[in-house]
Amino acid sequence: MNWLDWLTALMVSAGGFFVFVGGVGAVRMPDLYTRMHATSLTDTLGSLLILVGLMLQSGFTLITLKIVLVAAFLLVTGPTAAYALANAAFLGGQLPEGLQDGASDDGETQP
């Protein structure tokens, strides 16, 4: 293994760590909206680290371009899907739990 392989192994493992932490968070967190924060952990840094680590292995080839596209799709569709989910749940009548003071007025403006 040369230094590039080591760097890939390091980045893929670090990405795997963040993905795993996000999964743990999705199980541990108390309600839907807090779970979404944990999920976005896996969608951002976890995915990015793994995909950049893979790019290092393929060098300047078509495969790298395709991985860039995968990363771009994930980074664009991830927040869009998250917003669609949060908005549908919020307008559908599911309110966040355990809000601190100063936030209760938001709940009443909701349909």
Partner: peptide, 25 residues
């Protein structure tokens, strides 16, 4: 809205008429 959602710890819940409702961890 997408940048807020992309940052873990903050999720845009509603963006309408220039008003943003953001859920923060």
């Amino acid at each position: 809205a997408n940048s807020i959602t992309l940052t873990p710890g903050t999720v845009t819940v509603d963006a309408h008429d220039g008003t943003f409702k953001v859920h923060c961890l």
